[in-house]
């Protein structure tokens, strides 16, 4: 996002104990780290992985919703959905730009997504079967994303934090438009209410999985918390999300598909049933219903856009050459 001296340059730092202690002291003092600052290789690597995954999720996240643009039930819903999908594309671009300040190129990140080396949020490997899914995605999936993203606005890495501030401002419309769609269905005919309930049943558990593995099994959590890349653990954020969302479902007269869900007065939050982590890992590792389609569609868009990128560059070169020739006369 800023002057990017780092691409292709050697950003390696000699990580003496004194250097690491100085870096940690800056983090502890809530100082932001900026692109050309010296940073431990692990910090850089963690951010490249996390921001890259986040950017890929925004881009792949356009696909399940794009599926419904031509079939939205009214012009108002179609215009809103188009604007939402355009926002997701924009969010992907802000995030790719933030990752690029760490010395990774856009081409490299795209290549890692298409080859399957880089991951994206497992939620997008579920299919969008009915119009109600578009409502529930806005409400739950964007809702969970916002819960995750608000603390990232205070992330220790400046460019990531600034991108997240922009994204959070824009995401709030996504969640509200989704909830409004679900509310319209829930207040409609019995068949429409049934559609809303069916979508909630299918998206509830995958939405809870969006916060990532339980704290006990999360391999990157501790160090990310120390570096203030993360501010809350996966389980803390998941709990906040459940506590915020269950009353919203009750308001709609819909039921959350968890027979073990109970209000726990002592902790001031809901207790919930066990999450199927085998399903989570199966989907992350490529076994979800839509993994193959998503990458195929991204690859198709990338390959079929190649001639446009090449033509734009050729045209730019031709114009630059013409300008230089004119100046030389």
């Amino acid at each position: 996002m800023y002057s990017q001296g780092l691409i292709g340059a050697d950003g390696a730092t000699e990580e003496t104990p004194e250097f690491l202690a100085r870096f940690q002291a800056r983090i502890d003092a809530e100082e932001k780290i900026e692109p050309n600052d010296a940073m431990p290789e692990g910090y850089r690597r963690t951010l490249v992985r996390q921001i890259g995954q986040h950017a890929h999720s925004e881009i792949v996240g356009m696909l399940p919703e794009g599926n419904w643009i031509t079939r939205a039930p009214s012009l108002k819903r179609k215009a809103a959905l188009l604007a939402k999908v355009q926002d997701e594309g924009g969010h992907g671009l802000y995030l790719y730009a933030a990752a690029e300040t760490l010395g990774v190129s856009r081409e490299q990140m795209t290549e890692e997504l298409l080859s399957g080396k880089a991951k994206y949020s497992s939620i997008f490997n579920y299919p969008t079967l009915s119009w109600a899914d578009i409502g529930v995605i806005g409400w739950l999936v964007d809702g969970a994303a916002i819960m995750n993203q608000i603390p990232l606005c205070r992330c220790s890495y400046g460019p990531y934090a600034r991108a997240m501030i922009r994204i959070c401002k824009e995401e709030s419309f996504h969640q509200r438009q989704g909830y409004e769609i679900v509310m319209t269905l829930a207040r409609g005919t019995p068949a429409q209410k049934e559609m809303a309930q069916d979508a909630l049943n299918r998206w509830w558990w995958p939405s809870l999985m969006m916060f990532g593995p339980s704290d006990a099994d999360s391999q990157h959590s501790d160090q990310s918390m120390r570096w203030k890349i993360k501010r809350f653990t996966n389980d803390e954020l998941r709990q906040k999300f459940i506590d915020a969302t269950v009353p919203q479902a009750e308001f709609l007269g819909l039921s959350v598909p968890d027979p073990e869900l109970r209000w726990n007065e002592a902790k001031g939050g809901y207790d919930h049933g066990p999450i199927d982590w085998d399903e989570f890992w199966r989907v992350v590792k490529g076994g979800g219903q839509m993994n193959v389609d998503r990458i195929r569609d991204r690859k198709k868009a990338w390959d079929e856009g190649a001639w446009v990128r090449e033509a734009a560059l050729a045209h730019a070169e031709k114009r630059a050459a013409r300008k230089a020739a004119l100046a030389a006369e």
């Binding site: 802000y94 045209h315 730019a316 630059a320």
Partner: peptide, 21 residues
């Protein structure tokens, strides 16, 4: 922020779409 574009004309168009919605 920043963006990728082949030339200044495309950069301005993309900037309008990405940063002024």
């Amino acid at each position: 922020g920043s963006l990728h574009a082949a030339d200044e004309v495309l950069a301005l168009q993309a900037a309008r779409d990405v940063y002024t919605r």
